[in-house]
Design a protein around this nucleic acid. Sequence first.
DNA 1: GTTAGCACTCGTTAACGGTGAGTGCTAACT
DNA 2: AGTTAGCACTCACCGTTAACGAGTGCTAAC
Lengths: 343, 343
Amino acid sequence: MAELSERKQHILAIIIERYIATGEPVGSKVICTQMGNAVSSATIRNDMADLVESGLLAQPHTSAGRIPSQEGYRYYVDNLMSNYELGLEEQERIKIWLGSFSSEPDKLLEKAGSILAELTNCVAVSSSPADSEAVIKRIELVPLSNHTAMIVLLASSGILKSAVVRSDNEINMDIAEVFYNICQTYFNGRSVSDISIPFIQTLVASLGDKVFIMSPFLCAIADLCEAVKTTDLHLKGQNNILNHSELSEDAFRLMDFLHRGTPLENMLDSQKTQLNVAIGSENIYRELKNSTTIFSKYSVGDRDSGSIGIIGPTRLDYAHLIPTIKYLAGVIGNLLTETLDEE
Amino acid sequence: MAELSERKQHILAIIIERYIATGEPVGSKVICTQMGNAVSSATIRNDMADLVESGLLAQPHTSAGRIPSQEGYRYYVDNLMSNYELGLEEQERIKIWLGSFSSEPDKLLEKAGSILAELTNCVAVSSSPADSEAVIKRIELVPLSNHTAMIVLLASSGILKSAVVRSDNEINMDIAEVFYNICQTYFNGRSVSDISIPFIQTLVASLGDKVFIMSPFLCAIADLCEAVKTTDLHLKGQNNILNHSELSEDAFRLMDFLHRGTPLENMLDSQKTQLNVAIGSENIYRELKNSTTIFSKYSVGDRDSGSIGIIGPTRLDYAHLIPTIKYLAGVIGNLLTETLDEE
DNA sequence: GTTAGCACTCGTTAACGGTGAGTGCTAACT
DNA sequence: AGTTAGCACTCACCGTTAACGAGTGCTAAC
């Protein structure tokens, strides 16, 4: 990309910021006055023509003003944008709000998603920390009635999962004890990835006559391990899709995409950098070709655990959104790391 | 409402069913052929004019066919509609699918909502059983680490709620024992409505030096009791709003309405009958004036506990949807009643 | 390199006329 | 009285046309 003159950069920035604010093509006259008539509108028109040539601007039609192209947004984000900082009170408010959920990662991320959707008027997506190398820290059996019990599994990643199990046999102290012994011997300290169906099968085989009593519980444990490994996606502010008129055309496809889940998960999995801004067709899924996604990973301890971010139109207030998302990811990471270390 | 002749009823039914299927105004000729030319199109036109007069049909404009009015749909639902029955395999499939969640009411209803959304291509709403007269059946403390524990509360309504609590003090056997004693004395068997903030305050006052250790747990219990009393709404298939072109105009308002939650809750609370079909402006909220809501309550034991149903355009396949929703509510009720009785 | 001036482009809006599906009415028929 | 054929009428829909105006691109002068 050829270097851009100071003035062209300035013009590009004005067009983009104005377009972000108003959603309408920006003409040469407006720019001229905004620049204090330092140069004439004709000069600006010449520069704008060059910027179209470079692919940074686009023209909806000959007689309209200019709008940023995808590449224009990209240039803006990479070079021109001045990063905004969140207000201190707002920072504090978010910290406190999220702090109360810090011992339950799933809830924390759900809440964070809600906050982000609220803050940005976009669809917010957050993924719970998933760590396939997590180790089973603890399994508890909570009797609820004669025939039902809740199994609670805590993983080293801080993730807590539970399920209610029904047994045909009465759940008494004996069964609880057998259960604890099995956990102690076979599960605690083991990686959740080890707890596969074959593993459970061999285990079952060695149990002798307790098989029938225990198998529902063991299956539940396998399910919970699976759940620990799996990323949970939290979708918030879906109503915001309809806020953005430029998305309304393919709102349906977009909505459907979001609800399918798996592709979204793949997308987040494939992101390698901490912060990820994909504008328009930079997105790997064609359903997002008119959208921008901004995601930031958060780290628990020293490893990246999950992501939080937004999906919106390409016409987004990048200067505000990017720092906000970064900040949120930071807070989440800190809170989760703290709670994990504490123990 | 004056009686309608046999033939007018027939014509009305044909128009409504055809309009439901195609979404386009129905003309006299089509009806004529559909009736096997038993009468001429002119006769039908005369009848249609009468039906417009009675308010059961509407005309988008003079030279268009007829479409059902709100009142027309109402008449159809009350008098003309032939109730369809779900196929046996489908019934079985639903039963089995839902059966696996029957010990966790919240999950069961969420799942049921998903199924309903899938089945109907509408937005499905389900509310978890709420019972403010429920009694605390059991409270368990599950230690997770030195400073965190999970509190599990089981109510007589079958609702299970849990929360993770962090304590500054180490959570050891002593604390667990004190906790159990408190639960035994003050909580178990008590109605969740009794566990108010004042109640906790007086309780705290009588605790002496254990106040500081116990208060986070007691607060958590109060929160859980609150959660037991509160209806949880599950919204599924929101993407289906965009499926229905007649809703797309106020899709945004509708979406927003759904996300606000409280009005929806109020609406469900205000429904007195088992089955509730509100067509267009029969809905109490003006955001729904172009929509139809079909909800059925389900009963656990002998009391109505919650609702499940859909929100869609007024142009809906009532003949299929109403039985489907009724059936689903029945299955939910049965499953939850069974699990509750079992113990 | 910058600027004033001006012709040009093209989307937007309103007006116009033809087309056709479907009606409403009337007069005749059973 | 109810039913029917016939026919004029209505009105959304569609494509065409024209006026309008914001904004451009180009040229020639500075």
